[in-house]
Amino acid sequence: MLQRSVPLLLVTTIAAFSVAPFLIHNAPYESTMGLVQKIFYFHAPAGIVMFLSAFVCGISSAIFLFRGRQGADRVAVAAAELTVLLGTIVLATGPLWARKAWGVWWQWDARLTSSLLLWMMFTACLLVRRYGGPGSDKLAAAVAIFGMFNVPFVYVSVNVWRTLHPKTTVVPMLGPGMREPFWFCILAFLSLYVLLLALRVRLAEQQATLDARYLELDDRASA
């Protein structure tokens, strides 16, 4: 089902990201921040979809670990990679904003820090797959499950830690005319996410088929 919707998703995603710049351009200027505020239209949706992706990865990892479904493992790989990718977008756009808003590239702001930690957990997940040797798929599954359950703890602990200090800036409330492009961008990122997930899962399936063919060939050669 996921695979059959690829062409449709491709069209939707391209269309959405072609329209998005115009909507963002036409959105009203935020009074204090000016132009740089517009990063927000990509930054926040990427962050939201990243959290969603972390949960997709955790849940499919649990299904893989307990049911042994290879398909779930492929979704987990794809979701882990996309979590890292979206996290990278969040972590790259965040400092751009911070430089203008707070005057520093990096601020140990609660949300930025939580995003960094989430990004780290899923990067660890990929590292283990890459360097763990045989059986590392299960290891990566465990890391993803633990990472998913860790999200609330990271969020609460970072928030309480940060509120011990004076707040720097409050993210400006969305004024009229900003809300629509924002929601549009969330939908655009969601569509992009599902598209990339479907493509990555398909790639993993093809790799598995290739491995199976390779083994068959090996058998036939040595039989």
Binding site: P134, D211, L215, D218, D219
Partner: peptide, 12 residues
């Protein structure tokens, strides 16, 4: 049993 593309045991 196979580990990735390495076949350790085959149809025994």
């Amino acid at each position: 049993r196979h580990f990735g593309r390495r076949r350790a045991l085959s149809n025994v």
